[in-house]
């Protein structure tokens, strides 16, 4: 089938493609028959309940996990072969807070696959500096990673992913454990970055996100894609399996609040 596609097909238009992809942990199905196409320039949010398969989807795209069945290509290739083009920010809760490391050292880790050898070059440091500027924390470069707040740590991890100079940026729960102001700034940053790269991020928080992102990939064992304007209470109810109210961030109540009739 794949050979039928002429070579001159602009592969760069399709960043990732999943065809009937299923994945199971110890026979427990996590994702079933997922069909998904990520186009270049996409800014998509992967939403769904905990354990619904959001992180699994990201890990499949990274090649950290292999599909049990189905076909998955990233940049027209197997994920393992194109990892150098993917930047990844894992959930930050997994880090050892006391680890003795500076912000700069963490960001430089993103250069590891690009430098041949075991020392960082001047160019690596330059790219790391620029990545820190991209997320507005160049001033923190010399600080200890353990001294930072949750939101700052999050941005350091994004800078680390950016120093890979990725074409595709994957973020796992970038909004977890950060305060709302930091979240607003974070999405401004991502919006700017989206001009240069395709962005996919997993989140379980949906109300706010839907305003900045272009489309929403709903994951709960199966995958459904919606453009952001289409998100309704019904869709959320289907995905989360219960009555949930959507917070109207675009609407401001008076200070006393308002009453429902």
């Amino acid at each position: 089938m794949r050979n039928d596609i002429p070579q001159e097909t602009p592969m760069n238009e399709r960043i990732a493609e999943l065809k009937n992809v299923s994945f199971a942990y110890n026979r427990e199905p996590v994702l079933e028959n997922v069909n998904l196409t990520i186009k270049k320039g996409e800014f998509a949010s992967i939403v769904g309940p905990n354990g619904g398969g959001k992180s699994t989807l990201l890990k499949l795209l990274l090649g950290l996990l292999r599909p049990s069945s189905g076909e998955l290509t990233v940049f027209g290739n197997t994920p393992e072969k194109v990892r150098h083009r993917i930047g990844y920010m894992p959930q930050h809760a997994q880090f050892d807070i006391q680890f003795p490391v500076t912000v700069m050292e963490v960001v430089l880790m993103g250069r590891l696959g690009h430098t041949r050898g075991v020392r960082y070059s001047k160019k690596d440091r330059h790219i790391a500096d620029r990545s820190l500027e991209d997320v507005h924390i160049a001033n923190l470069a010399k600080r200890s990673f353990s001294d930072l707040s949750g939101g700052q740590r999050q941005r350091v991890l994004i800078a680390r992913a950016l120093s890979c100079e990725p074409d595709l940026l994957l973020l796992d729960e970038p909004t977890a454990n950060i305060d709302p102001e930091a979240e607003v700034v974070l999405f401004e940053i991502l919006k700017t970055l989206n001009k240069r790269m395709t962005i996919l991020f997993a989140t379980h928080d949906i109300g706010f996100v839907s305003q900045t992102v272009k489309s929403v990939i709903c994951v709960n064992r199966c995958v459904v894609v919606h453009p952001t304007s289409e998100i309704t209470g019904e869709i959320i109810k289907d995905i989360y399996g219960g009555e949930i109210c959507m917070i109207r961030h675009d609407h401001r109540c008076s200070e006393e609040g308002h009453e429902h009739d």
Binding site: L64, R83, Y88, F95, M109, G113, C164
Partner: peptide, 22 residues
Amino acid sequence: LYFYHVLLAVCFDQEFAGLRGV
């Protein structure tokens, strides 16, 4: 000394280091 940066990355975040081709 020789592998300082690589070992630092492996100890800090083994998964990420692996993704970078280490």
